[in-house]
Amino acid sequence: MAHAYRAVQWNRYKRLYDAVLAGGCVAYHVLFVGIGAATHPRATIETLVIRATATLAFLLLTVVLSIGPLCRLDPRLLPLLYNRRHLGVVTFLVAATHGVFSIVQFHALGDTHPLVSVLTANTEFASVSQFPFQPLGLLALLVLALMALTSHDFWLATLGPTTWKSLHMLVYAAWGLVVVHVALGVLQAERHPAFPVLVGAGVLWVGGIHAAAGLRERRGDRERPAAREGAWVEVCSADAIADGRAHVASVGDERVAVFRRGERLFALSNVCPHQGGPLGEGRIVDGCVTCPWHGHQFDPETGAAPPPYEDRATTIPLAVRDGTVWIAPDAERTS
């Protein structure tokens, strides 16, 4: 939606979000290193920093992956999603700190280049217990770096929403690599059962809420069967749509949002052209359809974003017959 790209389009909420995030990260490190040094007098600071950044990056990545499905399950949590990209970038920065400290600690000042050493020091690929876990962490870090570097709207516009979204789905690959990195690394060194229990709980949590959100979406699609008459598909009663709100109908593999603005009704693809947010869960604000994810706005009649922005949502022909809303999803659209 951005017309002129800026590094960050700051607003009050983003500032608050980032302040809480940064403050929480600093407090986490102070507590982890401070209490760690007090309870383990023989600990070295660099080891505590490596572990603080490792545990925090794992925690943040778990939160990043949880926000999407949680918002599907409970839209009241959507304010957490609004600035998720900053959370993702901070996760990368924390993970990068862990990576740099670890590479320096374990691989620098030796007879081989540190990055080469990460990949070649341990070559026990045929062994489960001795499998090299560090290259997995490095690979996860590279994926997170790629995502952090392309998180800006410039890359979203340059790559296109589909490619950009596909690229950023690699976060699940990064998550898998991190889980195996942890399982084959620190879980083989720490003896307290809390460590495998917490990692296992994190994996079950992330998998569980994704499954729950997916089931809910699928159930929602089944609950909105649409009748057809030629090119036209029956959606719902026109009276069923409250002013400023939408009704979402499943038509084939697509979801369509039918919005009411006063006396008029408009049909648009439910997919926000910005980042694929569910437009139908948004509202009409200042006469425009407003996406619940990032607040991007579109004229419901034309699909165009207000000037100077250039995004355009896909509009779909709509007719009201005898108080029933019909749409023609296969007819010519504007987008």
């Binding site: 982890f32 545990t55 720490e190």
Partner: peptide, 17 residues
């Protein structure tokens, strides 16, 4: 998050002497 961090740092295995 902070409570988890405190628990994790305290539960670390004993460091060598």
């Amino acid at each position: 998050g902070l409570a988890l961090g405190v628990a994790l740092t305290m539960l670390q295995a004993r460091f060598d002497e």
